[in-house]
Amino acid sequence: MNNFWRDLYGSIKEPEFWALSSWLDIVVKYRKSSLGLLWVLMPSIVYVWGLGSFFASIQGKTLAHFSAHVAIGAMVFRTLMSSIIESATVFNGSRSFILDGHVRLTDYILEALAKSFFYFCAFIPATLVAVAIYPDLQLVGILWLPFAFVLTYVNALWVTVAFSLIGARFPDFGQLISNISIFIFLLTPIIWYPDNMPADSVRGQLMRFNPFYHFVTIFRAPLLGEKIEMMSFWYVGIMTVCGLSLATLLYRRYARYVPLWL
C-alpha cells in the first residue's frame, strides 16, 4: 500500500537524492551558457520591467505602481505553473532511477517542487526592487506573506502529485500544459487589474473560475492594499483541503502503476 504521507515524511527526512538531482538539473541547464546562473534572473527582469512598463503605459499607470503588481503576480503564477510543468514530466525523466529500484515517488515530487522553488527564488531580486519603489506598501500584508507562501506551496504539493501521476500515464500531458500555460497567464490578472471584471459579468465569472486568480490574489492583494474578495480565501481553503485529500487518494490508488506506465 502506498501511503502518501508516510512516503512524504521519508523523503523529507532523507533529502539527499531529490535535493541533489534537482540542483544538478538546474545547474547543468545554465552551465552551458556563458552568463551562467545570471540567466535565471532574466525572465523576472523581462516580465517585471519589460512587460510591466509596456502594459503600464497602455493602461495609464505609473511604473512604480504597476511593476509590483506584475512582479508578485508573475512570481506566484510561475511558481505554480512550473510545478505543474515539471511534475508532468518528472516520472518520465527519472525513468531509469525508478526502474532501477528507487521507487519512493515522493522523492521525485519534491524534486519538481524544489525546482519550482528555485524559480520562485530567482524572482525575488526583481520583486524586491519593485516592492521597494511601491508607494503604499501594507504592513499587514508583510505579516501575512509567510502564510500566503505556505498556502501556495501546500497547493503546489498536491497539484504536483496529481499532475505527475497523470503525466506518467499520458506522456503528452506535459506538452498540453505548456501549450495552454500562456493562455492561462493572460487569463490571470497579472498584466491587468481584476477591478474591471465585476463578478456578475461573463468575463468576471471566467476570471474567478481560474484558480490562479485566487492564488495570485491572496498573495498580492494584502501586500499592495488591493481589493480582495472573501471568496478568494474560501476558494483557496477549500482547494487546499480537497486537493490534499485528492492527492492522498490518487497516490494510494495509482502510485503502484507508475513503474508499469513508464
Partner: peptide, 27 residues
C-alpha cells in the same frame, strides 16, 4: 539490482557529480 548499469545518469553533469547522484539514489 544489476539490471542496466549504464542508465540513470545526468548527461550534462560531471562524472564526479554523477557518482554522487547515483550513490544517493542507491541510498
Amino acid at each position: 539490482a544489476l539490471l542496466n548499469m549504464s542508465l540513470g545518469f545526468n548527461g550534462e553533469a560531471t562524472v564526479r557529480e554523477n557518482i554522487f547522484l547515483r550513490g544517493v539514489a542507491m541510498g
